[in-house]
């Protein structure tokens, strides 16, 4: 390729980004004013404003950066420095659904690596890439604070707990088919831009969204159930109430049983 083919490589200054069209700007201004009003100092509004411009375009464009800079009286360089520091801000257009597979140690060991591998193969894309139809972006993510539900997959930052390669493939197939998809913890999926708007601090307006999916799955309730005298699947021992589990039990829950190799 010729040296002049890519202007960016020459380090020449870029022309300033185009501003948003007036009607977009007017709409965003109302939201931005609300965001700025939440903080004692305006610069604190920068992260939510970046979420806001991401909710407008699906990523943080140079136009979005310019907008944030103007609203907060910062330079575009200052805003860019912040926008590029945080992993949730996309720097280029990407899929309607962000599919993140946890491959931090615990999830990886329990199967996250295999899930991520299978999804790449199934979708024909690699890490940080988007399917041609624009429906799905795939990324391996770090620990998402759901280790008791490992392996975990996040879609638009809603929890899909206890996944395996088959369930994960079904999930992305459903997403691509436009089916309604519900997370194990969270509300029925909305698009990436709608998610970004919630992140900007605007409550989810969909009726019932807050209440969907209950208080948590079995892991969240495990200790509570034991404390109430119930028993857990595969856990043996004398439980006072509701012996609803399969028999198991060759140990009685008394001490001295090594934790190692406790049989179910």
């Amino acid at each position: 390729m010729s040296a002049t083919e890519h202007a960016v490589s020459l380090g020449l200054p870029e022309l300033p980004a185009e501003p948003y069209p007036a009607e977009v700007r007017e709409r965003l201004d109302a939201d931005a004013a609300e965001i700025v009003a939440r903080y004692p100092q305006s610069r604190s509004a920068l992260l939510p404003l970046l979420h806001l411009v991401q909710s407008e375009e699906g990523f943080v464009s140079r136009t979005g950066i310019r907008y944030c800079a103007e609203r907060l009286e910062l330079t575009t360089a200052e805003v860019t420095a912040v926008a590029t520091f945080y992993t949730m801000y996309r720097r280029r257009p990407a899929g309607e659904y962000h599919v993140g597979v946890c491959t931090n140690t615990l999830c990886a060991v329990l199967g996250g690596d295999e899930i991520f591998d299978e999804l790449q193969r199934h979708l024909g894309i690699g890490n940080n890439e988007t399917t041609e139809d624009g429906s799905i972006s795939l990324e391996h993510i770090e620990c998402n604070a759901a280790c008791d539900y490992a392996p975990v997959v996040m879609v638009n930052w809603e929890f899909f707990d206890n996944q395996d390669p088959e369930s994960a493939k079904r999930l992305v197939d459903d997403l691509r088919a436009g089916a309604e998809v519900r997370p194990t913890r969270g509300a029925r999926l909305c698009g990436f831009k709608d998610t970004a708007r919630i992140l900007a601090g605007f409550p989810d307006e969909r009726p019932g969204a807050v209440d969907e999916s209950g208080a948590g799955g079995a892991p969240s309730m495990a200790g509570l159930r034991l404390a109430h005298g119930e028993s857990l699947p595969g856990a043996s021992g004398p439980k006072v109430v509701s012996p609803r589990q399969q028999e198991t039990a060759d140990q009685d829950g008394s001490d001295s049983n090594g934790a190692e190799g406790d049989e179910a």
Binding site: D148, P219, S220, A222, G223, L224, A227, P233, G234, D255
Partner: peptide, 22 residues
């Protein structure tokens, strides 16, 4: 066997938690 949240007084041991949880 049963990953999850177990709220207990500080000072329990992993053996105890494993014993009760499977």
């Amino acid at each position: 066997t049963n990953p999850g949240q177990y709220e207990a007084p500080l000072g329990v041991t992993l053996r105890q938690l494993l014993d009760i949880s499977g």
